[in-house]
C-alpha cells in the first residue's frame, strides 16, 4: 500500500501496523464490512415489503389467505431462528434448481431424490457448473439475502399486524363515514397512521437484524467473521511477510466494538425518528410534544 512497505522486517511498530492493516487480505476484510452493509440495505426494505404483504394477508377477509398470513407470522414463534436460516438456504436452493429442472429438462425420467442425493440435470444447476467464481459468490449472497428477507419479513409482519390493529378504531369509522372504500381507508388513513405504533417494534427488529448479520458466516458467505477468523490465526514467517501470534481475540474485539458502535448509533437515530413521527399524533409522546411547545 505505502512505498515503505517493501521490507516489513525493518519497519518500526507504527509503520509495521500501517502496512499490516493495508495488506490485500485486510482490504478483503474491509470490503466484507461493505457486504454486511449491503445485506442490511437490501434486506431491510425487502423484509418490510414481505412483512407488509404478510400483515395484509393476515388481515384479509378471505379465510385461506388470512391463514397463510397468520401461519407466516407464526413461524417466528417457538422455533430458533438459526434453524430457519440453515433450513431456508438449502430449501430455497433446491426449490430453484427443481423448478429449473422441470422447465429445462422436461423429458428427464429419473427421480430428483435418489437416496441421499439431490440430482438435477446439468442445465438446471444453479449456478451453472462452468460459471465464474463471482457468480457462485453472488448466488450465495442472493440466497442469504432472500433467507434473511423471509425470516425477518415474518418478524416484520408480526409488528405491522399489531400496528395496524393499534390505529384507533374511530379513525377508520370516520373514514367510512366520509364514504371512503375499504381500499381508500386503508391507504389514506390506516397506513399513514400505523407507523408511529410500528416504529418501536421496527426499531427493535432493526437492532436484531444488525445483530443477526454475523450469521452470514453460517450461510457460507465470506463475511467479517470469516475474515476475522482467517486473519487472526497465527501466521508464520514462512508464509507471510507479517508474522504474528494468535490475534483472533483482537480481531473479535474489533468486531464487538464495531457492532456496539453500530447499535449505539442506530439507537440514537431511532429515538430521533420516534420523536419526529410522534409529532401531531394522538399518543402520549405526541401530547408531550404539544405541551412542550405550548
Amino acid at each position: 500500500m505505502f512505498d515503505f512497505c517493501t521490507d516489513p522486517d525493518t519497519l518500526g511498530t507504527f509503520q509495521w501496523f500501517a502496512c499490516y492493516l493495508t495488506t490485500g487480505k485486510h482490504m478483503g476484510m474491509y470490503w466484507s464490512v461493505l457486504t454486511v452493509l449491503v445485506l442490511l440495505a437490501i434486506t431491510a426494505p425487502a423484509a418490510l415489503l414481505f412483512g407488509f404483504f404478510g400483515a395484509r394477508a393476515a388481515r384479509s377477509r378471505i379465510l385461506p389467505l388470512s391463514w397463510l398470513g397468520k401461519g407466516y407470522i407464526a413461524i417466528t414463534r417457538g422455533v430458533p431462528d438459526i434453524a430457519f436460516f440453515m433450513f431456508f438456504v438449502i430449501a430455497l436452493d433446491q426449490m430453484f434448481e427443481y423448478a429449473r429442472h422441470k422447465i429445462k429438462c422436461p423429458d428427464w425420467t429419473e427421480p430428483v431424490r435418489q437416496g441421499n442425493d439431490f440430482i438435477v440435470c446439468t442445465q438446471a444447476k444453479l449456478p451453472l457448473g462452468n460459471s465464474p467464481q463471482w457468480v457462485h459468490e453472488t448466488y450465495g449472497f442472493f440466497l442469504a439475502v432472500l433467507t434473511f428477507a423471509i425470516v425477518f419479513g415474518a418478524f416484520t409482519a408480526n409488528v405491522l399486524y399489531g400496528a395496524m390493529r393499534a390505529v384507533p378504531r374511530a379513525q377508520m369509522e370516520t373514514a367510512e363515514a366520509y364514504g371512503m372504500s375499504r381500499r381508500q381507508a386503508f391507504w389514506r388513513v390506516l397506513v399513514p397512521q400505523m407507523w408511529v405504533y410500528a416504529i418501536p417494534g421496527l426499531g427493535n427488529l432493526w437492532m436484531i437484524l444488525i445483530k443477526a448479520t454475523p450469521l452470514l458466516f453460517l450461510l457460507g458467505v465470506e463475511d467479517i467473521v470469516y475474515w476475522a477468523k482467517d486473519l487472526g490465526e497465527t501466521k508464520h514467517a514462512r508464509f507471510t511477510d507479517y508474522p504474528h501470534g494468535d490475534w483472533r481475540i483482537w480481531y473479535f474485539l474489533a468486531l464487538l466494538v464495531f457492532y456496539l458502535a453500530f447499535t449505539w448509533v442506530s439507537e440514537k437515530f431511532i429515538a430521533r425518528l420516534t420523536r419526529r413521527l410522534s409529532h401531531g399524533q394522538a399518543t402520549l409522546g405526541g401530547d408531550a410534544q404539544r405541551k412542550a411547545t405550548a
Binding site: 444488525i210 445483530k211 443477526a212 448479520t213 454475523p214 450469521l215 458466516f217 467473521v225 476475522a228 477468523k229 487472526g232 494468535d246 483472533r248 481475540i249 473479535f252 474485539l253 468486531l255 464487538l256 457492532y259 456496539l260 447499535t263 449505539w264
Partner: peptide
C-alpha cells in the same frame, strides 16, 4: 447491559472463546 445487549451473541461466543483460550 449495553455491551451484552448491543453486540451479537454469536460474536460474544467467539470473543469469549478466544479469551478463554488465552
Amino acid at each position: 447491559i449495553f455491551i451484552f445487549r448491543g453486540s451479537p451473541l454469536f460474536i460474544q461466543f467467539f470473543f469469549a472463546y478466544f479469551i478463554f483460550l488465552s
